[in-house]
Each structure stands twice: as structure tokens, then as C-alpha cells.
Design a protein around this nucleic acid. Structure first.
Lengths: 101, 101
DNA sequence: CGATTCAGTTTGCATAGCAAAGTATATTGC
DNA sequence: GCAATATACTTTGCTATGCAAACTGAATCG
């Protein structure tokens, strides 16, 4: 493994709270605000601000609608987000693979 | 995998530059300042400040000596550091294991 | 000696994450 | 019908962080 791999890791993805949300989205394809909040145990504020970052990076698409009369925000991974997550994953697995559990 | 794993990850270790250095130390048992700098491609300033954190956390032991008339600083993982790194590793491998490469 | 190099450390700053407070609408209790 | 609570978020404020650049002190070179 290249010893300078650390320069290549994507900080947007590397943040645990975001990785947590991305891992959810990777599996379920679409999830809404409250679901993610319950699933990850993050506060609403954190979901909100982290999702803005993911949106700015082009990693998630945000869809705002109304369910009944209440607002509903749902998220899904973009192809770009999926690709970047897989790249990140590959790099980290290699790094960690060189170390025992 | 528990969906709130992100609360358990060790931020001291999670930082890529530090993980990079720790990965070196995990393998070689002892390395000096210049070796790590070359190996990781980090600047001297970064090695210095990151190592202070690792030292504060009790993860590395720092030994300052002189080689000839020049100062030489060498580092090695403490048992605590080794343990924490392994825990971190295990958690991350599980998280990443649930995602394809 | 004066300049440069080597081995680190310290400083300055821009960014980041997190909790708490705030906003806006909807619903419930009386 | 209206005050109080709840829901679904967003914004703010603060602290901490990583990084590059500047700095220190000693040693070697010309």
C-alpha cells in the first residue's frame, strides 16, 4: 500500500456521522430525515448540516415534499456519491487490511 | 452492526495523517521522526503536532536522544495504543464490510 | 564566520463538528 | 377557538482541529 494514501481519502465521506448516513443510504436507496435520525441516533441539527455537505459535494439528492400537511425531506445517493463511497471503502479496507483486528 | 457505531470511533486514531503514522508504528515497532516523515509524506510540522496528540492520548511513547551531535526523536506504540488501534480497526472493518468495494 | 541545512516546535488561520436555540407549521387539550 | 405542545427542520455560537508557514537552535559547509 502506498504510504501516502492519507492524501487520497475523501474527508466528506470520512467523517463518522456522514459515513453512518451514507452507509444507510447505500443499502436502502432512499430514506427520509426522521428515519435517518432514528437510525443513526444523530440530532436533527447534525443530520441537517451534514446532509448539506453531502449535497454540496453532489453525493446525495434531496427531495422535499409534503406528506399530508407536514414537510418531508428524503435523501438518496447519487451515482457520484455511490462511486466515491466505494472508492473510499476500497482504500480504507486496504489500509485496515494491513493491520490485524 | 449497531447503527450508532459512529459514537464509538476514536477520533484520535481516525484522523488519516495519524492513522498513517500509527500503521507504520504498528508494523515497525519503532521509528524516528525523519523516517516517518519520509514514509508518510507529511511535513515536519504535522508529524510534530499529530505526535503530540498521540502522546497525550497515551498511544505512543516518545524517546528523545542524540545521534552523534544531532537530536533524534523516535516513537513507538504503547500497549494502550496498540489496543486502541486494534479496536478502531475492528469497528471500521465491520462498518466497511457491510458495503461493497 | 556567514550561509545553509537539519531536526523539530510554535503560531495563525480557516474550517469543522456539535449542541442549543430558533423558525414555521400542525395538532392536541381545555 | 386558542394556548400549549409537538413535529420537522435550519441556523447560530462556540470550541476544537488540521495544516502550512514561520520560527528556533544547533551543526556543518564554503
Amino acid at each position: 500500500m502506498d504510504s501516502t494514501w492519507h492524501n487520497t481519502i475523501d474527508k466528506v465521506i470520512h467523517e463518522p456521522a456522514r459515513l453512518s448516513m451514507l452507509a444507510c443510504l447505500y443499502v436502502v436507496e432512499s430514506a427520509d430525515f426522521v428515519f435517518l435520525q432514528r437510525q443513526t441516533g444523530l440530532t436533527g441539527g447534525n443530520i441537517s448540516s451534514h446532509m448539506s455537505k453531502l449535497e454540496d459535494a453532489g453525493y446525495v439528492k434531496v427531495v422535499k415534499t409534503f406528506v399530508g400537511k407536514r414537510p418531508n425531506t428524503s435523501f438518496q445517493l447519487t451515482p457520484k456519491g455511490r462511486g466515491s463511497l466505494e472508492t473510499y471503502c476500497g482504500t480504507m479496507k486496504q489500509v485496515l487490511g494491513d493491520l490485524a483486528d
